[in-house]
């Protein structure tokens, strides 16, 4: 069965919106991503997000060992323009990227300005596994008291993110996707702590 560009994308969007509204809440889009029938060398769920978010109005950057091929493929598929990390609206850090690439992606991404903080980049990161194990504690809007998350990736991005988001409302918003099509969002308002609050 093929991915339905109207209904499957709508269902996926609602789950992403739910996760963005409630940082730490993990939603799964495997029902939708399983329907992707294109041969790609990154997660199907990442492609679903690309269909959901990209079009000719905005720009993107792929960070991957196969950057050139994937960039050309996505450009043809969505008509979105490829730009460098400093200017891209959406930055996709794929599974084969090195931890330092993610850190550099966060450091160099645009964080908007005080007049237009919405012009900041959204970084979508493919990781091995996402869970609610108590590795990170999350606080901020969308969280009643504290939420927990475990993101299976080298921790260096955490410091880079907190430095980038130091001057709210400037900052970057992040969406993590794992190989099981789980989605977890960290908007710029979410404070991360590696010390778990009990």
């Amino acid at each position: 069965m093929r991915l339905d560009y109207v209904h499957d994308i709508q269902k996926s969007f609602r789950k992403v919106l739910d996760s963005m509204s409630r940082p730490g809440l993990i939603n799964n889009i495997s029902k939708e991503s399983e329907k992707v029938d294109l041969e790609i060398n990154f997660f199907n769920s990442t492609l679903v997000l690309m269909f959901m978010l990209l079009d000719s109005d905005i720009s993107f950057k792929i960070i991957s060992e196969k950057e050139e091929d994937i960039t050309s493929f996505i450009n043809k598929l969505t008509y979105a323009k490829s730009k460098n990390t400093e200017k891209a609206d959406f930055i996709f850090v794929l599974r084969d990227a090195k931890p330092i690439d993610l850190v550099n992606g966060i450091k160099n991404a645009k964080s908007g300005d005080l007049i237009n903080p919405h012009k900041a980049a959204t970084i979508i990161v493919e990781v091995e596994e996402i869970s609610n194990n108590k590795t990170l504690s999350l606080t901020g809007p969308g969280i009643e008291r504290v939420n927990y998350a475990h993101i299976e990736a080298e921790n260096s991005w955490i410091l880079a993110r907190s430095e980038k988001n130091e001057e709210y409302p400037l900052g970057i918003d992040m969406i993590f996707i794992d190989k099981e099509s789980n989605i977890l969002c960290l908007p710029r308002t979410t404070a991360l702590s590696t010390k778990v609050v009990k």
Partner: peptide, 12 residues
Amino acid sequence: EIRRAALKAVAI
């Protein structure tokens, strides 16, 4: 386009 705006609105 509206969905992208809604996601940013939730983030700020």
